[in-house]
Design a protein around this nucleic acid. Structure first.
Lengths: 151, 151
DNA sequence: ATTTTTCTGACTTTTATTGACCTTTGTCTT
DNA sequence: AAGACAAAGGTCAATAAAAGTCAGAAAAAT
């Protein structure tokens, strides 16, 4: 039993496989017309099947010349990054080391790791209680991992 | 899909790169005719893409021999960012713009600016009061400038 | 019979395009 | 010098061309 959503999903994934650079651009309205559905169904498909945790990144633009861009991320990278993930119990206390390791493992360039070290460094957060600062660094580090995986 | 506005933007930036002294002079009507659009669309492009925020200065003159002059500012990093520091009120909405600008000005790579945008973004500091978050961003931004200057 | 998933449409927001009308500057006539 | 006209560019509001949101209906799955 194949629903329209399923068909759209399959179609988009086909396009993705055939595309250069794991990336495609479609127009929501055109796609909806092609599949004879309402435009918002495209959003439904995107939000249920092309989610971040499945390794997709969606970017869109409204207005004249608008588009929907779907990027498929490299899962291998995600896996390899997995070991850096903060999962509640664990938290880092030495981010300098982490960023250096990320550099050595080629996830970051030298400059990138320097930049991050300076942002995470003491002066910026020094006026906060240690615990608070630690929490903020954790949150920021999560964002960093996220960003790196999207490269 | 590319819009006319986008094409005009690209064209002007191309001219700028090839021009002496980071400055070009065009005629609004001629440009509009070349791109087969109404003259006021040129103003639209200028006001949405060649803004002060992005480091451009527009001067115009009406009447016979009128022109539109577009200057790309090429100040040092210090001067450019000094502007943001002087008014002090770094509005955090603006950090995206700042990092994009730093990328456009070749102080940061695309990736670096993406990284920084994600670190400065809402999620990382969302649990803090706005004022506190603003202060932290300011401090971190100072560190970023410092690091960039050492590159 | 419920719960979950899919589908739909009304309403919103963002970005781009167009055109009617306005202002400034330069030049030509008288 | 004044006025008329031409040759620029400016403004703003209306419209068009996208995509987003969200709640409720319908269909499918359990």
């Amino acid at each position: 039993m194949s629903t329209i959503s399923k068909k759209i999903e399959i179609y988009l994934k086909l396009l993705l496989r055939e595309a250069e650079g794991n990336m495609i651009e479609v127009q929501r309205n055109a796609l909806a017309e092609y599949f004879e559905c309402v435009p918002s169904q495209i959003n439904y498909v995107l939000s249920t099947r092309f989610t971040t945790d499945r390794g997709y990144v969606i970017e869109t633009r409204r207005g004249g010349g608008g588009f929907v861009r779907i990027k498929k991320l490299d899962l291998g990278l995600q896996q390899k990054m997995g070991k850096y993930q903060i999962d509640g119990q664990f938290h880092y206390d030495n981010y300098d080391t982490i960023f250096e390791r990320l550099f050595e493992e080629d996830f970051l360039t030298k400059r990138e790791s320097q930049l991050l070290k300076s942002v995470f460094g003491t002066p910026a957060l020094s006026h906060l209680p240690d615990k608070e600062a630690g929490l903020i660094r954790e949150n920021m580090f999560r964002e960093v991992l996220n960003a790196v995986m999207k490269f």
